[in-house]
Write a protein that binds this DNA or RNA. Structure first.
Lengths: 174, 174
DNA sequence: TCCGTCATGTAAATGGTTACATGATTCG
DNA sequence: CGAATCATGTAACCATTTACATGACGGA
């Protein structure tokens, strides 16, 4: 499974304009965290690599000695090529479900407690996604907005079914 | 993030009885694959480790020279301890959503095509989960069934929202 | 002056998959 | 006999996180 860190970087530089490594991290944390995030430990080495390859270039020196990168023509081509390729499926792991699967080996009350914790998180996330959508509609415009709202929408829908599912389960365990 | 391979093994040996490494893999592929799976490359070394620690022991020699492990008292204690601990959240990555986020950089038709592919997968999965639930209700019984059905149910619900979400998106892009 | 944030980077450890090697057994 | 499956194992590789080191800058 090849690393996609480079495409996450290229994509943000392309759609959101030049950014420093630090700003990239912040942007991801605020907008793509639900389905994609990167640590500094993978961000900075990848930035260096991309610069070496000529896919990005250090543009201006920003405030506080930050290095602002922008995407090059070569980088744009690589990004677009990737965007045409079908997306690989991910195999997510859920420790919560793994534990639920083995729940005969623990008291019912422990299972319920963990379900309630999961439900609480889901509920918070629903609110968070609603706020994100509102925020986006206010502050953004243009062609991107439509796609960004779609990603947020899926997050919200999934959080909502998680919440409902927890209620179902807790009902059944009562 | 500590490895949970050991608990997946211990849990299956406990709830489904003694198994070989090969059988463990097969069992996971058939029952937990949607939220948990392991490769041989992590399975066998972990089995060796667990045996060294006395959490499992080779019981009988099965057919075809397979080594059948069963969980020990010590292993049971470790499993239970883990089951009491709250589950860690996972940070899943979705290449599909990452690409969708950058969809201004590709033709609308490419985005639609990938959404349709995603929808087709979701639809298949819904059917698969329905079959799994049916199968489980027929072949299983006891306390475990209830929990297994819960995990399957979440899979189905999530696949269903994925499907609906795709339709929404495709509608909007028409 | 000192704290918090901005900012870049690296080293070590971790965790995991993939690909390969090996060979037994069963079935057609 | 030959193919498919059962079965175990390892080595190389890859990706990623964590923890740490370093220091500039702005404001209270």
């Amino acid at each position: 499974m090849k690393s996609k860190t480079r495409y996450a970087i290229l994509g943000i530089l392309k759609t959101l304009g030049p950014k420093s490594g630090y700003a990239l991290k912040k942007t991801m944390a605020e907008s793509t965290a639900y389905f994609w995030s990167e640590s500094f430990g993978s961000l900075y080495p990848t930035l260096a690599q991309l610069e070496k390859e000529g896919a990005i270039e250090p543009r201006e020196k920003g405030a506080r000695r930050s290095v602002i990168y922008s995407i090059t023509a070569k980088g744009s081509v690589e990004l677009e090529k990737w965007l045409f390729l079908p997306a690989e499926e991910s195999r997510p792991r859920s420790e919560m479900l793994l534990k639920l699967f083995f729940s005969t080996e623990r008291p019912k009350e422990v299972t319920c407690e963990q379900l309630r914790a999961f439900r609480a998180r889901a509920q918070e996330q629903v609110q968070l996604f609603k706020q994100m959508a509102e925020q986006l509609r206010k502050s953004s415009s243009g062609d991107s907005l439509k796609y960004w709202l779609m990603t947020v929408r899926l997050g919200q829908l999934q959080s909502e079914v998680n919440f409902q599912w927890c209620n179902e389960c807790l009902e059944e365990l009562r």
